[in-house]
């Protein structure tokens, strides 16, 4: 079935969204994503990230412009279950009487008959997806009895079980421990390599350069869109976040002279975003970024 499906793409064309109360949450938003990418949607709280997701899903109808998914209207895309949506934690009723297994199974409803009676295949897929996020040991747990990171992983399993090729994750790293964050990032990378489109909203800047290929910077409109290295500049971020960001300068150590190269930064859960002296992005390790290192060396020599 997937072989004949058109390659995934998201095409947001000049979208303006107004809420019923007249508030215009997004104005003239355009960007386009093609298969095999992880794209971050970055902006402060209230900048319209969730609103943009809801318009891509077709839950909100744009006042102007339109969204096409894999060349189809959003309604047609929904009928084909092309897009999986992982909601923000605040939008879920965690006291609801459903178990981890029930939630994973909900990802399969669209593949079942109208009575939603699971076939062996549905059970296999749900089981496999729970294993993939490391939650198969918690199947009988009521969803409220999980930690923040486990909750996210259960909903990720549901999105995987849906087998859509586009995944929208709203704030997947909020309230999540560092280990779970890395596990989720690894999973998203695998999906990207399999040709999926992943759109992740976040206001946590530090993790973005680690795993996102592209960035859409929003504040009620698109401020910048493109490859991460181009969009993630101090200027762009300053205009997106205004005075919200805290800055730490490491021009020199406050208590002793260091070698001028190594800077150690500790933080509890949010990854810090680190710029080098000339304004380039720093990553946590060099592994997998050998090409960038070479490029920088060349630039330095030139």
């Amino acid at each position: 079935m997937h072989d004949t499906a058109p390659p995934p793409s998201i095409d947001v064309d000049d979208v303006t969204v107004a809420y019923n109360n007249g508030h215009i949450a997004l104005r003239d938003v355009s960007f386009k994503l093609d298969a095999g990418t992880i794209c971050a949607l970055v902006g402060i709280n209230g900048s319209g990230k969730s609103t943009l997701f809801k318009s891509i899903m077709g839950f909100l109808r744009p006042a102007k412009g339109g969204v096409r998914i894999a060349g189809l209207t959003v309604e047609a895309a929904r009928r084909r279950q092309l897009v999986a949506y992982v909601p923000q934690s605040e939008e879920v009723d965690w006291t609801f009487p459903v178990s981890v297994w029930d939630v994973a199974m909900m990802g399969r409803y669209g593949h079942m008959n109208f009575m939603r009676i699971p076939r062996a295949e549905d059970k296999r897929v749900a089981q496999e997806c729970l294993e993939r996020v490391g939650m198969s040991g918690f199947k009988e747990r009521q969803i409220g009895e999980l930690s923040g990171g486990q909750k996210k992983r259960v909903f990720l399993a549901r999105a995987l079980a849906q087998r859509g090729r586009i995944m929208l994750l709203d704030e997947p790293f909020t309230g999540v421990d560092v280990q779970t964050e890395s596990a989720i990032i690894d999973l998203l990378r695998d999906l990207r390599d399999a040709g999926h489109i992943i759109l992740v909203s976040t206001h946590n800047l530090g993790s973005v350069p680690e795993f996102c290929d592209q960035v859409v910077l929003v504040n009620r409109t698109v401020l910048a869109f493109g490859p991460t290295e181009q969009v993630f500049t101090e200027d762009n971020l300053a205009s997106a976040f205004g005075g919200v960001l805290r800055q730490f300068q490491f021009e020199q150590s406050t208590i002793q002279d260091h070698d001028g190269r190594t800077v150690k930064l500790l933080t509890d859960d949010e990854r810090p975003l680190v710029f080098g002296k000339d304004g380039h992005l720093e990553y946590t390790d060099r592994q997998g970024r050998e090409q960038l290192v070479k490029k920088r060396e060349k630039e330095a020599r030139a």
Binding site: R79, Y85, P87, V98, M106, Y109, G110, R116, R158
Partner: peptide, 22 residues
Amino acid sequence: LFMRKDLLLFCFDSAHASAIGL
């Protein structure tokens, strides 16, 4: 009884219900 699962999903998470084409 026929619709019980769809109705439950609708009560729990109508965004997902609509994402999978319900």
